[in-house]
């Protein structure tokens, strides 16, 4: 187990370095940061001096090397736009994104699994058919459109929920949480549902497919033949055997929830890391973009690792193979 973790750790460093390298190669094409950092009256000489000072004239490998070296020491540089340390900015924004991703993941699981089980069991019921059909909307509508439609309906027409932002937050240490205020919770509803919709549909369809598969297997038939109650057969025997792929997908999707919160965050002006990133792209704020991408790579590696560990817990066969 320890060697497994060490191996994973080493891999994660390589993944992060690769992501940073690719990112820096791309930064050559995002445009000129200097123009966003100075006003129209700033002279050419001053612009050149600033560019030189920031090291933007160096070849990209040199820039990458400098970034990697500083990042290894925990220094992600200073944002071009906000002129404050990037690590401060990202940590300030992280709670918003993590809370949003967490609520979305819970929503996706809590709704997705039961709906999946239900549609598998009542395969031909009209309600199942209705759920399956509407779920197609969930996978096919772009997040941006879902968000705008929800804003229009619940924010503008009904005026039940706020159209943007996070509401009031309470600071617990350095963590600003929106869970403790009414406006914070109300603000969470639309963005978390928007973000969860795709995952919800995915999990539901996955659970359904796996359930149908498992229900056909011999051990389920035997369980039924043994006269076990339906409830026990469905949830104890069948559902449990569908969980390995569900955990994998959910785990990986949690990573994407954090990473792809970008769109949801910009539709709802949710002050998380994704919004910071998308703003950084239009400002060509290279230090923020670099730090964000590396951080997201780290999240993916971390989540994959946790998923692998969970396999051990869920599937006894893996444990015996290991021994």
């Amino acid at each position: 187990m320890v060697s497994f973790l060490l191996k994973r750790l080493l891999q994660s460093i390589i993944v992060m370095l690769t992501v940073a390298l690719i990112a820096f190669a791309m930064f050559q094409f995002v445009g000129d940061p200097i123009n966003n950092m100075v006003g129209q009256d700033t002279t050419q000489v001053e612009r050149e001096a600033l560019k030189e000072k920031l090291g933007l004239n160096d070849p990209f490998l040199v820039q990458f090397g400098r970034f990697a070296w500083n990042a290894a020491q925990g220094d992600f540089g200073i944002s071009y736009k906000y002129k404050t340390p990037v690590s401060d900015l990202i940590f300030e924004r992280m709670p918003a994104t993590l809370e949003l991703a967490f609520v979305s993941a819970v929503l996706a699981l809590v709704l997705g699994i039961p709906l999946g089980v239900y549609t598998a069991l009542k395969r031909n019921g009209w309600l199942s058919k209705f759920i399956m059909t509407t779920s197609l909307i969930g996978v096919s509508l772009p997040t941006f459109l879902t968000g705008i439609l929800l804003i229009l309906f619940f924010g503008v027409i009904l005026r039940w929920l706020p159209t943007f932002g996070r509401g009031d937050v309470v600071e617990i240490g350095t963590w600003a949480t929106g869970f403790l205020t009414i406006s914070g919770l109300k603000s969470l509803i639309l963005p978390s549902f928007t973000l969860a919709l795709f995952q919800l549909t995915l999990i539901m369809r996955l659970v359904r497919a796996e359930m149908l598969e498992v229900l056909r297997t011999d051990f389920v038939k035997f369980a039924k033949a043994r006269g076990l109650p339906d409830r026990s057969v469905h949830f104890k025997h069948a559902l449990k055997n569908t969980l390995v792929p569900v955990i994998t997908i959910t785990g990986l999707q949690l990573g994407s929830l954090i990473a792809f919160a970008i769109i949801t965050e910009s539709v709802f002006q949710w002050p998380g890391m994704g919004l910071l990133f998308i703003q950084a792209v239009s400002d060509v704020d290279i230090p923020i973009m670099a730090a964000y991408l590396v951080l997201i790579a780290f999240f993916f590696v971390l989540i994959n690792m946790i998923v692998d560990i969970l396999y051990y817990a869920v599937d006894p066969r893996l444990r015996s193979n290991d021994g």
Binding site: L152, V156, T163, F164, S266, Q279
Partner: peptide, 18 residues
């Protein structure tokens, strides 16, 4: 003051009275 990048969100926030 709140910055709102998306034009559609900005307009919605105005119409909703926020």
């Amino acid at each position: 003051f709140t910055p709102i990048k998306e034009a559609a969100t900005r307009v919605a926030a105005l119409i909703s009275g926020e």
